[in-house]
Amino acid sequence: MSNPNAFEELKKILLEEDQRETKRINEDLRSELQVKIDELEAQLNDPVKFSSKIEASKKQIIDILGPVMGSMIRKYVSSEIEKLNDSIDKRKEKFFGLFKWRDKNIKNIQQPKIIEILLIEEESGLLLGKFSKDAISDTDMFAGMLTAIRSFMQEAVKSDNQDVSLIEYNDFRIFLHNYGSYYFCVIFEGRNSPGFIAFLRQEIDTFSDKHRMHISPQDTNDFPIDQLNGLMNTYFERTCAKLAEKLF
């Protein structure tokens, strides 16, 4: 019959010597290691020795830590870039959002709006008639002073054939459309596009053709200004309505 402890006994006989040797080696290593650890500990606790050790092992440290640190740095930089990208994206969103808003609204903002149309006698600067959407302070004085400035400029540039046609002042623009003995002055705000100016010229020419006999100073002494104002109001109200439907 087999002995159940036979294997254990065999193992003990065959490996006893090796086990003793292994134990001895372990103890030797442990004691050696302990000495080394003590030495190292002593060095680490001594800042002068530690720093000189580091200094002496700089290249090795870099070799060892480089990849680790590089990876950490890359990770940090990448995370920071990500944060920056997020921030840029948010700003871009706001910025382009503004552009979108602008695109949507800018045409409305810049859409020209007529404020006042004055019909002024060329030489005297007397106001012959007016159409007001949003009246300026004193149209009589304005008409007189505007005529004086025009006269001055005509004399300054020595030309009766050329004339001022557009004056810009803050948000306002003053378009002047000249005839022989009278001229129209359109005060408007918004964009001064060629299309809008062409539209104004067309509207004014049509009114002028239709009512020349009431406008022309030599023919109008019997035509009261109030009636001319009425004609201008009716006509240019329609002009404003047309303008609201167009986009310049």
């Binding site: 600067g125 004193d138 002073m145 004086a148 400035i149 001055f152």
Partner: peptide, 17 residues
Amino acid sequence: QRFSPEYLSSIGVRVDK
């Protein structure tokens, strides 16, 4: 007076009502 007196010295005229 409403217009600035500077008009007088600059363009030589000022319009009043």
